[in-house]
Nucleic acid binder design. Structure first.
Lengths: 186, 186
DNA sequence: GTATGCATGTAATACGTTACATGATTGT
DNA sequence: ACAATCATGTAACGTATTACATGCATAC
């Protein structure tokens, strides 16, 4: 079956885990919170919902009357929840940190609720470790470059500072999770 | 003709403006400096080079002997330089800041060399203004959310801090550009 | 003469972007 | 009647991902 869900697909699963929503609701969410930086275009979301439904990861039901036009409300199925959990539980790799940081953050956003606080803490520890290992490599690369134009150099510095900001965030987030003690699965 | 070049295409133009390179060289550059976060896969780069050559933005010439295998070295044409300049000179919009920050940074990396220091400073001012206008909106959004899961909240905070890091970088980059006084076109 | 590294490429596939089409309801 | 908003969708297109194929040179 090799499900192979896209980043957008996982974002939809994660949001539908929190509550049943229509495609239109999901679009509005994406345009409201561009932190996740997910496209709110109908040409992306509706086909993605169809793919997920074809794989039995979500199920759509047409809402009875009420609204201006009939809405199709999607909810997560248990295979869908399983798929979401599997994605969330993956270990943090160096490649993730280099090429897919946004996806890591998206995973973290859903993680506390779906996998529980201990998993989220574990995730932050792994992220911290990968960042701490990667940042020195970048710094070495930056200093090794000599005939690079000024603005190029500054852009590289921004990249490094950005990773450092993520690292200090990861530490603060971990202690924030430890401090406040409600909820928290297995 | 509606050239419509992709982000990868512009990255290739920007690098080829600095020096003639082969497809393989470009791949190595992308795997070495993932700050730009550009794919180094042959299935992306070689077709992109072909598209650029078909549009007369670059020209490839097969290198005479020397290396282990014949290499095809690409160099920028004057239409290519014009296309690059047009991309670099575009104003910074709020949409860029929200959806295409990586492309903005890529543009800045090439900007000092191609458009000159005054243009780069102008760019930083525009970026600063858009960031300063956008960050409060995000903060208001974050505080308006109530029943959001803990890790989701933390992820949003990272997003805001990330924008703030970009803002303070833009300020520092501008004063760094002002301090050191060599080079600098029109 | 076989493996390894350099170097260029192609094919199948999946996906996002853009633009367009459509239907229903509310307000003017 | 008409516009605006809500809501779902499709079609054309471009392009990235993944995996594979190929050629040549050097080293063992």
């Amino acid at each position: 079956m090799t499900t192979s869900t896209s980043k957008l697909g996982y974002a939809l699963l994660g949001l539908l885990e929190q509550q049943p929503l229509s495609g239109y609701d999901l679009r509005k969410l994406f345009s409201a919170t561009p932190l996740i930086s997910m496209s709110d275009s109908p040409g992306a979301i509706y086909p993605a919902l169809q793919r997920l439904e074809k794989q039995n990861l979500i199920r759509g039901r047409i809402e009875e009357s009420s609204a201006l036009r009939r809405r199709k409300i999607f909810r997560l199925t248990s295979p869908g929840l399983a798929e979401l959990k599997e994605w969330l539980a993956k270990p943090v790799t160096q490649d993730d940190v280099i090429w897919r940081m946004d996806e890591l953050i998206l995973r973290f956003a859903f993680m506390g609720r779906v996998l529980g606080r201990p998993s989220a803490l574990q995730f932050l520890k792994e992220l911290e470790a990968e960042l701490a290992a990667y940042i020195p490599k970048l710094k070495r690369f930056l200093t090794s470059q000599t005939d690079i134009p000024v603005t190029g150099q500054l852009a590289l510095e921004l990249g490094i500072e950005s990773y450092e900001a993520h690292l200090s965030w990861a530490k603060r987030a971990a202690s924030a999770l430890l401090r406040q003690p409600h909820g928290g699965k297995a």
